[in-house]
Design a protein around this nucleic acid. Structure first.
Lengths: 120, 120
DNA sequence: CAGTATCCGGATGGATACTG
DNA sequence: CAGTATCCATCCGGATACTG
């Protein structure tokens, strides 16, 4: 399926993974998968320490890939709702597995990091 | 399990995901999982367009987490071999699933990106 | 061979102010 | 409310040169 050359031109999967490999994408997908539909401010609040700028650009990226949908309501004040598309819901289990793995192994990894620091 | 607050202090899983969320980590884990044991130069060659610097630092990061092991042989010229640890092999299926998902949906995503660009 | 050291440009990401 | 625009510091990552 894959050749033994992973350079960018030969392995286009990299461009896909780059999209969801961003600093915030996984978190956003996870929380959207859990809540179903969320407003901009709601996501912003749940994530806690993301800036408006990063949230906007990450949502745009996911929207461009067709992983997240964006619905704007012509109201005052404006309301914008985000949710996973079918593609996004298909991706979700993979994300969830990764997060679950992280949870399961977080103590081990933190110990590994500690002992690695000492053996320098 | 998880609260509704994903900020860094509250959700330590983020630090774990940050490690494997690097630009090259997924690729390296995948290829190591396939080949079993690889030398530095071999990985460098397969990845094609990674710099020595990035390969070194990514390998160090994965090593610190205990996901990759590093064995150095006192020879001239030196030989260093990398392979997945048990923890790394446990992580591998998740990585593989993500890559498989990327392969499966790459055409759709590329089309989505195209049409998104036009509708601006 | 498998790195380390250094330099450097560009991308990333935060803070702030402003707008429909 | 949900952004956009701008400025700015930091980090990322490539190129190059050097070393055990």
């Amino acid at each position: 399926m894959r050749t033994n050359n992973l350079s960018k031109g030969v392995c286009p999967v990299r461009s896909v993974l780059d999209g969801i490999g961003g600093k915030w994408s996984i978190l956003i997908l996870d929380i959207l998968g859990e809540k179903g539909t969320m407003r901009f401010g709601e996501i912003n609040k749940v994530l806690g320490d993301i800036s408006q700028k990063m949230l906007t650009s990450t949502l745009r990226l996911l929207e461009a890939d067709g992983i997240v949908s964006r619905k704007m309501y012509a109201e005052i004040p404006p309301r914008v709702e985000y949710e996973l598309t079918e593609l996004g819901r298909d991706l979700l289990p993979n994300i969830r597995n990764l997060i679950a793995w992280g949870h399961k192994n977080i103590e081990v990894i933190q110990r590994n990091r500690e002992s690695f620091k000492k053996n320098i």
